[in-house]
Design a protein around this nucleic acid. Sequence first.
DNA 1: ACATCCACCTGCTCGC
DNA 2: TGCGAGCAGGTGGATG
Length: 291
Amino acid sequence: MPELPEVEVVRAGLARSVVGREIGAVSARHPRSIRRFPGGPDEFAAQLIGRTVRAAARRGKYLWLPLSDDQVLLGHLGMSGQLLVVPRSVPESPHLRVLIGFADDGPDLRFLDQRTFGGLWVEPAGEAPDHLPLSLTHIARDPLDPLFDETVFVSRLRRRRTEIKRALLDQTLISGVGNIYADEALWRVGLHGGRPTDRLSVAKGRELVTAIREVMIEALRQGGTSFDSLYVNVNGESGYFARALNAYGRQDQPCARCGTPMRRESFMNRSSYSCPGCQPRPRRRRRHGSR
DNA sequence: ACATCCACCTGCTCGC
DNA sequence: TGCGAGCAGGTGGATG
């Protein structure tokens, strides 16, 4: 899926292209894409038509558009979702799931989603300034959020009894990190993802946060990571960070730091990439209570 | 509360 | 060419 940098690219595009516009016709073409909205397609459209988009917000990998009347249009791109801003004359793609038109007859907002893991829904707004809706309160602040509390994150991380990569992918601990940026950040600080969280020093924890933030900011500057046309901005354009990746997808290629061929391991039913030289596997955890 | 696993989908690539 | 297996950037809900 798009991780934080890719979602932020989309949010910025929405801020430029749809804020201030009144929603016109709405058509939900696939019930699965609005499954998180209890009312079904007609009610979904009714909740949107006539309302004006006030802002474009994001937390982690979730996006939302605060609307007039204290409602928000929420979205998650899942593994393959796209939010595109396209002129009405552009033919519909076979993966079009939700079509949102505007009263000004300008470009549509189209939600495309090949695998339908993503979705859109409408919900009452939360409190200002962000209007974070209730369904997102379990999502932790992300490392680019000015209110992200690094000290709290590191201490929660060290209280966990799990592996560091699992923890990074847990959106209730830190949001926005997915499989690519977890591997990139772990490579940068020389940690294997299997290292136990409760034996990480505070200093190393802070280093890790810095690495996550740095790799995300660099990716953002390059428009995000795109291996194919699935991950694009609202204008359908790919980002260029894929060429700057040091870990993800680099199995058997030399480590950019030490030259050792990179390894690929299976983890949580997905792939993890790391350097055997810079990121040694942890020794087996000592039994609890032993010394 | 916390930790872990799996279902939910489509489409592409690879080996036979 | 065809076919099955394996793989893909995520999450919520069910289970311990």
